[in-house]
Nucleic acid binder design. Sequence first.
DNA 1: ACAATACATAAGCCATCACTTATATTTAAT
DNA 2: ATTAAATATAAGTGATGGCTTATGTATTGT
Lengths: 126, 126
Amino acid sequence: MPTAARKRPRNEDRIFTALADPSRRAIFESLTRGEAAVNDLTSRFQISQPAVSQHLAVLKDAGLVDRRKDGRRVIYRVEPRGLKPLIDWIAYYRAFWTEHVQRLEDLLDSMPDDAPDAPDASTRPR
Amino acid sequence: MPTAARKRPRNEDRIFTALADPSRRAIFESLTRGEAAVNDLTSRFQISQPAVSQHLAVLKDAGLVDRRKDGRRVIYRVEPRGLKPLIDWIAYYRAFWTEHVQRLEDLLDSMPDDAPDAPDASTRPR
DNA sequence: ACAATACATAAGCCATCACTTATATTTAAT
DNA sequence: ATTAAATATAAGTGATGGCTTATGTATTGT
């Protein structure tokens, strides 16, 4: 069947917003060291369990983490492809100043991605 | 098992918060097309001049833009090295989750179907 | 000198956010 | 069957953030 428009929302907006909060970024960073249940994460930080759950919901909505049920626990893990829109955003604008930042080239060349899309300009100039 | 000691400054904080706002990101993106005065930027968006100045102040504080005076105008331009902490952040944690993806794939290869094992208990709280 | 222009800062308003406690829901343990 | 545990959601609250208008400070033009 011919696929119609792949009009995926692909919001780098949610990603930037999700990672802007230090607690949320700390939770994400903690998950890069291995998957963990909500209770595990709650014990690692000094915020309440609902706060952790809310942060995880934001991260999940941004596509940065995924979850799986294990009995009465919910195991969260990093979604490896979640940072792709962020990398694409950087890749798109790299053309304008890339000659000054060779490390960016190095990083982007080592990324296992294919043909980054142009980040969407939902806030367009007039 | 990676026990990442914290020896990395967290200056990506301001960058994430600076880029989290769509208007501010739009201003930054606009500056990638060339340097511009505040008045130029104000005419491109539908927000007031003080709002533009405030956004530019946040971007400058994050190290994403720099400015130069030209008569009574202030010309803003992208600071090429400004995104480096962001790129470093991605590169740093990318190493972790690619490692974990590999570990997960190895696990799935060696173990067909049953008994998901316990989450990593060696992750230490801060 | 005076007026106009370009920008920054101040002050206030309103929406959003990150947190809390309380509660509902699902699953496990006894 | 009860109780406990793990998590999500609801509701409320204080703080923060982005916007506005008003005003201050340089700089240019006449």
